[in-house]
């Protein structure tokens, strides 16, 4: 190795995990919006990875209906630039409890997705749902809430249509990171906006509230993302003609 030869400075992995409801009530336009939005954020996440020397975003997508399935595979988090997108197909019920249980399993270094040589940053976990849970979720969610990765994660939920925002709030632990819409076009915009904003805030190291407030809990990543989302939403509503943008 010569004096000017280098290997990359190790980057922490920033896990971005999306839990996507694909129950039959999502059939039609909602699942189409969900697919388009999630597929659309992958190149954005890949582009952030090119620019950010501090963190490397890796991605996992869980689809849940009657059962759960990791669309991105069970081997772990994947590089968003390398993942080959396959659309979600709506069917079945809304087994939210099962999704919580499976997420809890995978938020683990020893038997889950979280073993990374250079370590991780706090995960970003995004839940998208359009209806009431059809299973008994309380025990699974309570267990998930004991998971240390879950505790420090930035948790955001997007509710569509008949989603029960109280349940989503139980999941995020913060009403400010539960966003609801009844508009299918807005659902697509929201998913993209929430995923990109929260991934950027966490992966660029802006998620430590102690940066600006030394009395704040430095591990309350969710509230920092809540602030960013709140402030960014004004800018979002400004963009009325997407045809004019580039």
């Amino acid at each position: 190795m010569g004096m000017i030869d280098r290997v990359e400075v190790p980057r922490k992995v920033c896990p971005v995990i999306i839990l996507a409801d694909k129950s039959i009530s999502m059939d039609g336009l909602p699942i189409g919006s969900e697919n388009a939005a999630i597929e659309g954020i992958l190149p954005e996440l890949a582009s952030m990875n090119k620019e950010n020397p501090d963190a490397f975003i890796k991605f996992a997508l869980m689809e849940f209906s009657t059962g759960v399935n990791w669309k991105t595979g069970i081997d772990g988090l994947v590089d968003p630039a390398e993942y080959k997108w396959v659309d979600l197909v709506a069917d079945g019920a809304t087994s939210f409890g099962l999704a919580c249980k499976e997420l809890n399993n995978k938020l683990s270094v020893s038997h889950g997705f979280m073993k990374q040589a250079s370590g991780s940053m706090s995960p970003v976990i995004i839940l998208i749902s359009d209806g009431e849970p059809t299973d008994s979720y309380s025990v699974a969610l309570a267990e998930l809430k004991k998971n240390n990765w879950f505790k420090v994660a930035a948790k955001i939920a997007i509710g569509y249509g008949k989603a029960n925002d109280k349940v989503l709030e139980e999941f995020t632990g913060n009403p400010e990171t539960v966003i609801h819409t009844n508009d299918v076009q807005e659902l697509k915009n929201l998913i993209k906006f929430v995923a990109i904003t929260s991934s950027m805030v966490v992966s660029t190291g802006q998620a430590t509230k102690s940066n600006t407030d030394t009395n704040a809990d430095p591990d309350d990543t969710t509230s920092v993302v809540a602030d960013a989302l709140k402030q960014a939403q004004a800018a979002l509503s400004d963009a009325t003609d997407p045809g004019e943008e580039w």
């Binding site: 400075v9 370590g119 998620a207 430590t208 102690s210 990543t221």
Partner: peptide, 26 residues
């Protein structure tokens, strides 16, 4: 240090925790 030596001066075995939370960062 980053420019000449190619790593962060405070990042080594001890700081290589599974999750760099805000508490650990501090």
């Amino acid at each position: 240090f980053l420019l000449l030596v190619g790593n962060h001066p405070l990042e080594g075995a001890r700081s290589n925790v599974p999750c760099m939370t805000g508490k650990y960062e501090r």
